[in-house]
């Protein structure tokens, strides 16, 4: 089956018969079944013991590299750092032509132009965090302007944050309307909605936030900003993948998932890939539908890749510092 992430039909909520009013959203989200916390954690622990070796490992490493959103979101980011990151995104391992490019470079709004310029002529996409990242604490007009400026500067993908305060206080329609408005401001750019699961307290909230974002038109749901600990975890990603699976069953729409933050080793990344394969199937094992938001992960992937291709262990002196 050909799978491409669909542009959000504005009526996906309507398709399910869910209105966008506060009452309708609340009734729907609170009717979702609760998450079995112990079961979810046991499930990811069991899947985490899968042994992925030799050719399967080589495949997984290359796939994971292609799924990386190479990210730099520091106050100290400079045009030079973004240029270096773009060079690395295009050609992660200068000593080995066969290493694939990453999926995207993820930067702040004001550095989108620089990234665009340095990625010209490559397949690597430019993602921008917008909507008053990472807190989301700004008025809707400011957040929309943030978004439209990033799109105008050439961003292919927008990573927005939801207003966790509104979500936690039960103002679901505000969050819904935010996402709908930002989606409209994105135009053709893909919209990733960051739930910031580290602030949502429970898996039930993660499930509700996932559904809320998908109903409002998200193309991707993303775990975290990377600024809050805990960031991405396997159980949270499992809950989100289940939401994506169920959403597809209910609406036919296919939504991507992006765990971000705290994924640093190849072993971790492979655990996520196993989780994807076992939860939503291999339709999702593509950079179009699953991404890793990471910076140091890429270096570890490259080290493991070098180990497989040369037969001896590589070291941090053989990859870039950041």
């Amino acid at each position: 089956m050909q799978v491409t992430p669909s542009l959000a039909p504005p009526d996906s909520a309507a398709l399910l018969g869910v209105g966008s009013s506060q009452t309708d959203l609340r009734r729907f989200l609170h009717s979702l079944p609760g998450v079995d916390q112990v079961g979810a954690e046991a499930r990811v622990a069991a899947l985490g013991t899968r042994s992925i070796k030799t050719t399967a490992k080589a495949y997984a490493i290359d796939l994971a590299i292609r799924m990386v959103d190479l990210t730099t979101l520091e106050g100290s980011d400079t045009p030079g750092k973004v240029a270096a990151l773009c060079a690395k995104a295009r050609r992660p391992d200068p000593t080995d032509n066969s290493a694939p490019s990453v999926a995207a470079v993820c930067v702040y709004n004001d550095l989108v132009g620089i990234a665009r310029q340095h990625l010209a002529g490559s397949e690597v996409r430019v993602a921008a965090v917008a909507t008053a990242f990472p807190s989301g604490r700004a008025s809707r007009s400011v957040r929309l302007l943030d978004t439209s400026e990033a799109v105008a500067a050439g961003a292919d993908e927008i990573d927005m944050v939801i207003d966790r305060g509104a979500f936690l206080s039960g103002a679901y329609s505000k969050v819904f309307d935010d996402v709908v408005a930002v989606k409209a401001a994105c135009g053709t750019a893909h919209l990733k909605v960051i739930l910031e699961t580290g602030e949502l307290q429970t898996y039930d909230n993660v499930r509700r936030a996932s559904w809320l974002a998908m109903l409002a038109g998200a193309d991707f749901i993303k775990t975290s900003t990377g600024k809050i600990a805990p960031a991405a975890t396997l159980p949270v990603t499992l809950v989100m993948l289940e939401a994506v699976r169920d959403f597809r069953a209910a609406t036919g729409r296919i939504i991507g998932v992006k765990p971000a933050g705290g994924i640093r080793t190849t072993k971790d990344a492979i655990k996520y890939l196993v989780l994807v394969n076992e939860t939503v199937g291999d339709d999702w094992l593509t950079p179009a539908l699953f991404r890793f938001g990471a910076s140091s992960l890429l270096n570890d992937l490259l080290l493991q890749r070098q180990k497989l291709s040369t037969g001896h262990y590589s070291g941090p002196d053989y990859v870039t510092l950041d």
């Binding site: 590589s314 070291g315 002196d317």
Partner: peptide, 9 residues
Amino acid sequence: PWLASHAAV
């Protein structure tokens, strides 16, 4: 041999 060939040693 693993230590001798290890690039981080």
